[in-house]
């Protein structure tokens, strides 16, 4: 389970997150939607400590991190936290000098100190799961965007994280490749992986999300089940946003 309380983050004088409170129960999928610049990416990056929040706290499993402006976190604390959160990037960010298999093995061997044999067995299983069993020995540049993103998901999964974070995982993909990535994510949701997904794929949110979170200008405007947010909302900002998205 992830519990976020009163999370604040500024870049210089620009306050991007203005006190976020969220709770994401274990085994559920939360989908974050919202207009550009509303702070969705920043929130995800805070959950992976790629950005260090200024204030508030995050609880992940039994680890709680408190943030205070100016206070530096211990690097061990940061690394431990990151090991428990997997990140899937918009631009995939695969390691180009490693094959698909090696990409999925790298963290297991270097960070978790698993043996090469164990890491390889696990990597092969994960690649099979994302439908890339045959592509294990290819380098990222030999793979399509959709395939690269699936390797990215396998790479994050390999660390056995308590939560997977996705930042617009399909928005860099050609339309015909979006489906294969969403399918993998749906499968993960069915297996009760805990996930936080930033996406503009409203159908995915409707079908898969246990919780839809609408963010605007650094605050959570509304959260609830897909029905509550998509069909039953009376909030003006939410309605405006949904209108804009559906008319695209």
């Amino acid at each position: 389970m992830i519990q976020i309380q009163n999370l604040h983050k500024s870049f210089g004088t620009l306050e991007v997150l203005k006190g976020i409170d969220l709770s994401i129960p274990k085994g559920t999928t939360a989908v974050i939607i919202g207009p550009s610049g509303s702070g969705k990416t920043t929130l995800l990056r805070c959950l992976n400590l790629l950005e260090i929040p200024d204030q508030g706290n995050i609880q992940l499993g039994d680890q709680i991190i408190q943030f205070k402006a100016g206070a530096k976190l211990k690097s061990k604390e940061v690394v431990d936290f990151r090991k428990n959160t997997g990140m899937v990037f918009q631009g995939y960010n695969l390691f180009p000098h490693l094959t698909a298999l090696e990409n999925v093995m790298e963290g297991q061997v270097t960070v978790l100190k698993r043996s090469k044999t164990d890491a390889e067995a696990k990597a092969r299983k994960l690649l099979e799961k994302v439908g890339l069993k045959e592509r294990a020995d290819m380098y990222p540049h030999q793979l399509s965007g959709g395939q690269q993103q699936r390797v990215g998901i396998a790479r994050a999964m390999a660390m056995d994280p308590q939560v997977l974070l996705f930042d617009e995982p399909t928005s860099a993909l050609d339309p015909e490749l979006v489906g294969e990535v969403l399918k993998v994510m749906k499968d993960l949701a069915k297996e009760n992986m805990t996930m936080v997904v930033v996406t503009h794929e409203m159908q995915f949110a409707q079908d898969v999300a246990d919780q839809v979170i609408f963010m605007d200008q650094g605050v959570v405007v509304e959260k609830g089940t897909p029905e509550q947010v998509f069909q039953q909302t009376s909030n003006q900002r939410t309605l405006q946003f949904l209108n804009k998205v559906s008319s695209r």
């Binding site: 790629l50 690394v79 990140m87 960010n93 963290g107």
Partner: peptide
């Protein structure tokens, strides 16, 4: 690219 550092950090590397 910065994304390479971030990908490495995201899997818990120092």
């Amino acid at each position: 690219p910065k994304g390479q550092w971030e990908a490495a950090y995201s899997i818990g590397m120092t």
